[in-house]
Design a protein around this nucleic acid. Structure first.
Lengths: 343, 343
DNA sequence: ATGAAAGCGCTAACAA
DNA sequence: TTGTTAGCGCTTTCAT
């Protein structure tokens, strides 16, 4: 198939009987164009169905494209962030493109690089496992806003949930219900390196702190899993074969859904094992699921990230580190069976 | 912040002591480079951390970027398609970017245009409401694969689920259970224009046909709703206030989740009103949800769409129209209360 | 207010 | 095998 050739700025200029520079000024609505010329140019643009090639614009100026890197597109929490981002971009000249990574390690770096190669005007990235140095080098080329990173660099902005506080809320809630044998199901060591500042690392640390503070240090038990619901299901099943705790605090809702499945498959009910998740994914509030979860408002995070990015593009140079307050959404969690017994 | 200037092909050429053309050949691994030159160039690339600017390449050749347009990123079925697409692209030199549209009307057209402006090498689009003519014009510029469109054009390939068969399966299932007062909850008229070939139009038509064939023409009832779970919840609530059918066949699982919520909120149980959805979203199989649904394998669709696109890019010109077979996943649906009574 | 012309970083003929 | 060179479609001084 012979591909049609689209109109160029040259064609428009000829059609309108003006110079290319004139057309350029009109489409950028730059200063110094007479109304009559503007009209003629616009008419020509209309007539030829002209659309500027982004690649050509990129050679000299901006692409009007913002990129967002997403580890694991299957996680509805990330989807919320994107929803907040697109909503904020409504009515602006910017187009958002998503680079799916399907893991926050090397894959994330690859996706970030792909966005940079495409000369997006700004990048939002969701907590990939990259060194601050690497990010600073990236941020030297293009404005960057990191979501969910607790480290602070002058080179990029951050938008984070207060994972420490969110976890504290979740643990307090379980303590108040009378739980003490609370297992923490979290992701691999790689993603929870102490001091790395990833959300899961913060949650793990606070889980440990809460347990110790409550005097339940001996009951601490951390179980590792992958990043999918299915892996959480499998690892929870293995856990339950070994020991049935009264509660499980799960690193995020996607994993918590797998945990819930496993509990059912093991012949237990949510009344036997209380589950608390993180992110307050939509389905968590479904009555049949009824999952207690920490809401860190993904939509607000996406919105804020885009705002910060636009500010950076507009010239801001001092870093901003924005933190959103988490809220605990209490739903299905119950008192431990033993405690109910005593009632 | 002063943005750092990245190395260009010129810098690499100078560093390696060769011409720009030589470097270009190496990075494209084109024919006619001596091993020694290749090594020197690669060393220089390494040393300068050089990465070719996609925009500059786009001016002459390819961008090695494939774009996928997604209406409503919140729908997990679309997410499956993306998963299939990214998996298929693993190991190739292509990068996938997603343009979220948040509606399949005008917004979809905008997103498609944005991808075209960015000169992606190929586009996968999910059933936006566009005329075949518009699509053919797009397809004249860039290879296009449409997912979920039942019209056939020589200009673009299509990947579809067999919505007629899928709906037939769903309806047969409900008939066999003894249902006859089956409501169809579907999207707005805009998205279900008879003859438009959208998935929802096909499902609606087959619902009508199945009902008539079964002799239940008088029980036909079509209820309209938006594209979100929440709107489905609201419209189902309104329906139930008016009349409680024995079953509801819902246009897709995202909507079906809202219907399930409404049923619960109305004080009914899934045993009172059987719900059948479409897409077999992950959560449908969760025991607590247990939603009967038509599986049209989004992953396979995404995978196939990318394969077709790569074939087009490689030069194929005859159109291919691929259809995936749907399977009914039977879960929670039950016989109508009246029929159970008779038992 | 308008236009001429240089140049962004690459690829692809073509020459050597 | 290697290098020279002419653009690709824009934006942006700088003249006019």
């Amino acid at each position: 198939m012979t591909r049609a050739r689209a109109a160029t700025i040259e064609d428009v200029a000829r059609e309108a009987g003006v110079s290319r520079a004139a057309v350029s000024k009109v489409i950028r609505n730059a200063y110094g164009v007479s109304p009559s010329m503007r009209d003629r140019v616009n008419a020509a643009i209309e007539a030829l169905d002209y659309r500027p090639r982004v690649a050509a614009r990129a050679m000299r100026g901006a692409t009007f494209t913002l990129g967002i890197e997403l580890p694991h597109i299957g996680n509805p929490f990330f989807t919320k962030i994107v929803a907040g981002a697109t909503a904020t971009l409504q009515g602006t000249e910017y187009q958002l493109i998503i680079a799916p990574a399907d893991f926050d390690g090397e894959e994330g770096v690859r996706a970030l690089g792909a966005l940079a190669d495409r000369q997006v005007d700004g990048i939002v990235a969701i907590s990939p496992l990259v060194s601050p140095e690497w990010l600073e080098r990236l941020a030297a080329r293009v404005p960057v806003v990191m979501i969910g990173r607790h480290d602070r660099s002058a080179a990029y902005d951050t938008v984070t949930g207060d994972d420490t506080e969110g976890t504290r809320l979740a643990m307090e809630h379980l303590f108040e219900l009378g739980h003490r044998r609370i297992v923490h199901l979290t992701r691999s060591e790689e993603v929870t390196q102490p001091g790395s500042g990833t959300p899961h690392a913060m949650r793990l640390e606070q889980y440990l702190a809460s347990m110790r503070n409550a005097g339940f240090g001996d009951d601490i038990r951390v179980v590792r899993t992958g990043m999918t619901e299915e892996s959480a299901r499998l690892d929870t099943l293995a856990l339950l074969d070994d020991e049935v705790p009264t509660a499980i605090f799960v690193g995020n809702d996607e994993l918590a859904l797998g945990t819930l499945r496993a509990i059912g498959e093991h012949g237990l009910s949510p009344a036997d094992v209380s589950v608390v998740g993180y992110d307050d994914v939509d389905i968590a509030s479904h009555p049949a699921i009824s999952l207690t979860s920490v809401d860190q408002s993904g939509v607000a995070m996406g919105e804020r990230a885009i705002r910060l990015l636009l500010e950076r593009i507009a010239g801001r140079t001092e870093p901003v580190h924005f933190s959103v307050e988490p809220t605990l959404r209490v739903r299905g969690s119950t008192r431990p069976a033993a405690a109910r017994h005593i009632d």
